[in-house]
């Protein structure tokens, strides 16, 4: 497949998944109907709509719209973050979780759930709803910042040290998280457990808007990162020889991935597997060159997360499955099948 065709295919998949995310549910809304309703909203305003249109407008704009936006942002951030991390680490196993983002976010989330209860009662409801994602965001960022500090000496960030320290830091953070889980009441435990499995059920436009700048920043950085990541595939020395400021590239990549993945995890919970698998799927189709890989992975990740969310909504109707269960339950076997068929093509 050519690179352009690959990016176009990923874009088409994303559009289809977004349409499904807007249309699928107890009230089915076809893409044509959705356009009709949104057109009417634009012309008449929400107050002037006939009742059946008002109902569909409410579903589209208040419920499925933010859910679709947040899902797309989170999926794009995780997949793009995975692709960038795999490139920087030159390691096919890397994903945003490896640099402490998910662990740090989970620790902050459980800390807020268990210890923040008193504070939570004093906050106005609008702020209270955002307190958990904001805590998770800063928890994720703080873990990565600590990791970067540990692995950087004399201005050089050692990749092998980053990987090992990431594992060690992850274990320690998980231990503290475990301690808080041990202290938690049953209802707190349930809240935390569902948060770790991921869900777009609590999506609001405010949450989507808060995540947007961080995800957008990484998307905008794609052209700046792509050439450097391609060169780093030759090793850091050869990348330097070919004109890449490798230390700057690593700092930029780490910061961009940490901020956007923390925003994704904060908004949608710790959704696994998309950050690992989406870049590999794209690489198999169009090769490892980052100019095409990064945008295609972002689109594919957004599409995968939305498709998983649609599945999560319909498999156990009227209940909703956690998305993390869907991404892993469908994604992992598919990925294993792919590995068995195309082994060796993955990392060269």
């Amino acid at each position: 497949m050519t690179k352009t065709a690959g990016v176009a295919l990923a874009a088409a998949f994303f559009v289809l998944a977004a349409a499904a995310s807007l249309g699928v549910g107890p009230v089915a809304i076809s893409p044509a109907r959705a356009l009709e309703v949104l057109g009417a909203v634009a012309r008449l305003g929400r107050a002037g709509l006939p009742p059946d249109m008002a109902r569909d407008a409410a579903i589209l704009i208040d419920v499925r719209g933010p859910r679709t936006a947040l899902g797309a942002l989170a999926g794009a951030a995780l997949a793009l973050g995975g692709a960038v991390m795999q490139g920087v680490f030159r390691n096919p196993l890397a994903d945003p979780g490896l640099v402490g983002v998910s662990g740090g976010a989970a620790l902050a989330a459980v800390a807020w759930i268990v210890l923040g209860e008193g504070l939570s009662a004093t906050l106005p409801p609008a702020l209270n709803a955002l307190a958990l994602p904001v805590a998770a965001f800063f928890g994720g960022l703080a873990a990565t910042a600590l990791l970067a500090r540990i692995a950087t000496r004399d201005g050089r960030t050692e990749i092998a040290v980053t990987l090992l320290a990431g594992v060690a830091l992850g274990a320690f953070v998980a231990a503290v998280t475990g301690l808080l889980v041990f202290l938690a009441r049953d209802d707190q435990l349930r809240t935390f457990l569902f948060w770790t499995l991921g869900s777009l059920g609590g999506a609001t436009w405010v949450k989507a808007a808060l995540a947007t700048p961080f995800v957008l920043a990484l998307v905008v950085a794609i052209p700046a990162l792509a050439r450097g990541l391609d060169a780093v595939a030759l090793g850091e020395r050869a990348a330097f020889h070919s004109g890449v400021d490798v230390e700057r590239l690593k700092r930029l990549a780490l910061l961009g991935v940490a901020a956007s993945s923390a925003a994704a995890v904060a908004g949608a919970g710790a959704i696994g597997f998309i950050g690992l698998a989406a870049p590999h799927l794209v690489r198999l189709a169009i090769g490892p060159s980052h100019h095409a890989l990064l945008p295609a992975a972002a689109l594919a990740g957004a599409g995968l997360l939305l498709a998983s969310d649609v599945a999560a909504r319909i498999v156990a109707q009227p209940a909703e499955m956690p998305i993390g269960v869907v991404t892993a339950a469908f994604g992992a076997p598919f990925f294993l099948w792919l590995l068995m068929r195309r082994r060796g093509k993955l990392f060269g």
Binding site: R90, A233, L234, G235, R237, G287, S289, L346, G348
Partner: peptide
């Protein structure tokens, strides 16, 4: 360089 270890299937 003496040896270049290329990652990924370029």
């Amino acid at each position: 360089a003496q040896a270049t270890e290329l990652a990924f299937a370029f």
